[in-house]
Amino acid sequence: MGIMNKLFGWLKGKKKEANVLCVGLDNSGKTTIINYLKPNDAQQVDIVPTVGFNVEKVTMTNLSFTVFDMSGQGRYRVLWSHYYKETQGVIFVVDSADKLRMAVAKDELDQLLKHQTIMNKRIPILFFANMDVQNSLSAVKCSQLLGLENIKEKPWHICASNAKTGEGLSDGMHWLSDQLQTVK
């Protein structure tokens, strides 16, 4: 099957495409993660807080993602729900050093999961427990605090990451691309 797919893709001369939504609270590192996934020459040095959203194209070995990098600031979070319809996967970024706002992240995640369009779709959700400082929470602790064990309907995966060094990012993205291919 995989060989056929690859062959098919190669014959078509075009990779499969998927729309992915990248959400999370402000200052959790969404833009930094997307920036790291871009080819080296297209990477930015300074990351500024996103206003509204950015659309980025990220190519993996066998998939081409169109990532909607949403702004995480409180006043822009209402925009997230407008893109739920087209999305085939969700990346949810959590700042694992921000223990105080874990409750806010959980609240936003619950709202996302309860949203009509997301609830009815079986889309994969990838969590990045993002950290750049010492004494941050582990991925297991993060999944506990977010109540991930209650997500029964959808495939999900959490991995600890470091957006600045790129640690753990490729693991997560590989999981997501595998999921997107099996879902289709």
Binding site: L25, D26, N27, G74, D98, L100, R101
Partner: peptide, 14 residues
């Protein structure tokens, strides 16, 4: 019993 309350921006939350 709340002894002192304060509302405002704490951390990054307004």
């Amino acid at each position: 019993r709340p002894q002192a309350i304060c509302y405002g921006r704490y951390g990054r939350e307004d």
